[in-house]
Design a protein around this nucleic acid. Structure first.
Lengths: 235, 235
DNA sequence: ATAGAAAAAAGTGTACACACTTTGCGAGGG
DNA sequence: CCCTCGCAAAGTGTGTACACTTTTTTCTAT
C-alpha cells in the first residue's frame, strides 16, 4: 500500500504542521476550514479533525464558533515555555548521562563536531540550526523514557515556529557552540548534575536571546509569506 | 446563557473524562462512537471529536479504522510515566522552593498537617488520598510557570485512573507521610536541591509501590468498579 | 457625517448518508 | 480436527446539507 495507513485528516494535519514550521503560516494567521478543504481537495470534515488535533497540541488556538488561529505566543508565555523546556531538558540529560549507550554518545559527538566544522567554515546557518536541533534531540532521547521524551519534544515543538528568527541573530552561534561544548564534556565526564545545570542555563539563555531578537525586529510576521511553496501528497 | 459556550463535543469529552476518572470506564474498555452518540443523545460527529481530543491527551488510544480504547498502561509504560512525573515534580519543586509566597507555603503546611491528623485518627483513606493529591498540586503550582504546571498535571492525569488502587495498599500511608515531611522541611529550609531529590525519590517510590500492588492483585480491573471511589476536583 | 441597528455574508457546529476497512464467523478443503 | 478462505456484520472515515453564531456591510435617524 502506498497509503501507509494515514487517514486524510492525518495528511492534512502533517501538511499544516509543515507550513507552520516552514513559516508559510506565521503565528497569528487565521485558518479557515473551508479554504483549507478546497486547497487540499478534501471535505471540511478531515480538515476540522486536523485542526482539533493541532489545537490540542497547542500549535493553534481555537475557540467555539471562531476561526482557528496559528498560536501566538506573548513574551510572558514564551519565557515560561523556555523555562519549562530548560527544566525538562535538564531532567532528561540528568538521566541520559548515565543511560546513553556508547554509540549514542559517539553519535552526539559526531553531531557536535559537524556543527563546529560548519561554524569554522562559515557554513549554511540553516544547516547549523538543524544540527542544533539534532543535538538537543539526541540528548533528550538518550534518557530512554518515552514519556519524558514525548513531553519534552512536545514542548519544544511549541516554540519551534519562533526558532527561525534565531539563526540570523548575530553572535549567537558561537555562544551556542561553547555551551554545547560544556554539555558534551559534562556528559562524557559522567557528571549528571553538571550536565543538568549546563543545559538548563543554555536553554534559558537561548529563550532570552530569542525574545530579545524578536523584540528588536518588531516588524510584522507577514514579511515571511511566500505562501503556497509546499505541495502536499495526494494519497 | 446556561450554555456557558461549551460545544457538544466539549460536553461529551468532559463526560467521558469523568467516567474514566470515576472508574465507570476502566482501562482497556472499548469506546464505540455509535453507542456513545446514542447514549448522550447527539450525533457521532461531536463524539468523534471528543474521542480525538482524548486520544491526543493520552487518556485513550486510537488507531485508524479501529475502535478507540481507554488507555491501558503496561507496567513498563507506567514505570516510565512515574519516572517522568518524578522528574517534572522535581523540576517544579526546585523552582517552587524559592517562588512560593508565604501564604502558599502556609497553605501547604495546612494540607500536610491535615493529612497527619487524618492518619493519627485513622480517618477516611479516600480523604487522605485527596489531601495527597492537593499536596502535590500545591507544590507544583507554586512554581508559577503555567507551561510547567500544565505539563506536570497532564502527566499526573494519565496515571490518575490507576491511583485508586493505591489507597488500599497496606502501610503505604505512613511512608507517604514521612516522605512529605522531608519535602516540606526542605522547602521551608529553602534547600531547592534537597527538595528536588526528596520529591523525586518519593514519586518514584510511589509508582513502584503502585506497580507492585497491581501486580499482586492481578485480577481484572472490572472488580474495582464500585463507582466513585475517588472524587475528582474540577478546575 | 456618525453612531447605532438591522440585515446580509461568512464561517463554524452538528446531523446524516454512504463508502471503505476491520472483525467475527461459518463452510469447505487439507 | 484445524486451518484457511471468504462472506456478512459492525464500525470507522469522509462528503454534504443545514442550523446557528459571528462578522461585516448597509441603512437609518440624529
Amino acid at each position: 500500500m502506498t497509503d501507509h495507513d494515514l487517514t486524510q485528516a492525518d495528511t492534512v494535519r502533517l501538511a499544516i504542521e509543515r507550513e507552520i514550521f516552514g513559516g508559510q503560516l506565521a503565528p497569528g494567521d487565521a485558518l479557515e476550514e473551508g479554504r483549507l478543504a478546497k486547497r487540499f481537495g478534501v471535505s471540511r470534515t478531515p480538515v476540522r479533525e486536523a485542526i482539533t488535533q493541532l489545537a490540542q497540541a497547542g500549535l493553534i488556538t481555537k475557540r467555539a464558533h471562531r476561526r482557528a488561529v496559528v498560536a501566538q505566543l506573548d513574551p510572558g508565555t514564551m519565557l515560561e515555555l523556555f523555562e519549562a523546556l530548560a527544566e525538562l531538558e535538564g531532567a532528561a540529560v540528568f538521566l541520559s548521562t548515565s543511560r546513553m549507550s556508547a554509540s549514542e554518545k559517539s553519535e552526539l559527538k559526531d553531531i557536535h563536531e559537524a556543527a563546529a566544522e560548519n561554524l569554522r567554515s562559515n557554513g549554511d546557518p540553516n544547516e547549523y540550526a538543524d544540527l542544533g536541533f539534532a543535538f538537543h534531540q539526541r540528548i533528550v532521547r538518550g534518557c530512554h523514557n518515552s514519556a519524558l521524551i514525548d513531553t519534552t519534544e512536545w514542548l519544544a515543538l511549541r516554540v519551534l515556529p519562533y526558532r527561525r528568527f534565531q539563526v540570523v541573530a548575530p553572535g549567537r552561534l558561537q555562544i551556542n557552540q561553547t555551551d554545547h561544548d560544556a554539555i558534551v564534556s559534562a556528559i562524557f565526564a559522567g557528571d549528571a548534575e553538571a550536565a543538568r545545570e549546563e543545559i538548563r542555563r543554555h536553554t534559558l539563555e537561548q529563550g532570552d536571546a530569542l525574545m530579545r531578537f524578536i523584540a528588536l525586529n518588531k516588524t510584522s510576521h507577514a514579511d515571511f509569506h511566500p505562501n503556497g511553496l509546499i505541495k502536499e501528497q495526494p494519497v
